[in-house]
Structures are given as C-alpha cells and as structure tokens.
Amino acid sequence: MTRAEISLSVNGEPVEVTFAPYKTLLELLREDLALTGTKHGCELGECGACAVLIDGEPQLSCLLLALECAGRSVETVEGMAESWQSGAGLHPLQAAFADLGAAQCGYCTPGILLTAKALLAHEPEPSRERIQEAISGNLCRCTGYQQIVEAIEEGARRMADESHR
C-alpha cells in the first residue's frame, strides 16, 4: 500500500510522519506517534473522548483524516503540561481536575481538558451554563458532570491568578 507523508506540528514540535493514507488523526496520534493519551469511545464522532485542539480549536480526531492535518498545529493532552508558562507542572486545568474529582476513570478526561482549554482561551471567565454547553459533546459516564464543571471554574480561577502574577 502506498503511504502518505505529511508535516505538522504536534504539541509545539515539528513532526514528519509517513502512514497508511486511510488513517484518521486519532489513529495517527495513537498508532504512529505513540501519543496514547488521546482516547476513543466510538470512532464515529459520538462520544468526544478523542477531542484534540487543531490550531487551538477542539475537533474530534476520529472524524479527521490525518491527511487533512498537513501543516496544522495539533495539541493533545500530552502537550498540556508543557504548554503552560509555569514549566513542567500541571496545567491549572489539569491540577483542578485532579484536585476536585473531575477525573474518575479518566478516560473522557483528555478530551474534556482540551475542550475546556479552548473555551477558556476564548472566554476566561465563562458562566456555568457556557461550560455545560462547551462540554456537552463530551460524554462522561462516571461523574455526573458536576465536579467537571466545578473543576473548569476552578481552573479558570487558577489561570487568572497565574496570569496576574
């Protein structure tokens, strides 16, 4: 089978990769780039577990062909900690999720973290309703969502504190 080759940016690093051309971005990340932090729950665009940021916007990596991502900037959960100004520590959203019980089994967590990060990039102080709306495409079977919403609110507060320092 002929293989495709693209260049893209993944978590801020330039990457050149060859792969079977039928692969989705989800498969490229997990199978060819060993970034298994991105999860899958349906591979049909139904659950939101595979959400990543493409040029800063949340997208379902199971519905994107990897070929469509040439030249684009992809951020996965593996890139979250490093991307924050405080260095190697957790992103404030990650820390808030861990502290406030927003991750139970942790399987939907990467997708929700990235969705929340994109929301806060546009709206640093979102209302509770806006948060619920933003994550409504991410299914979680463990938490009942309440602790996730609270953790996003807390993450927003911590980010505001960091940026005021």
């Binding site: 298994t36 932090g37 999860k39 593996e78 900690a81 999720f97 399987y107 990467p110």
Partner: peptide, 20 residues
C-alpha cells in the same frame, strides 16, 4: 487529590488499548 489523579489528567494512565 486521589493518588492516581496526576496520571488521569496527563493521559498517562495506561488503559488496555494503550498497551503496545
């Protein structure tokens, strides 16, 4: 914070399909 909290928010929890 739960003892496995950090693993779960960094994508480092190794689920079955992550075993390669």
């Amino acid at each position: 914070r739960r003892v496995d909290g950090r693993a779960k928010v960094t994508g480092l929890t190794r689920f079955a399909d992550d075993v390669v």
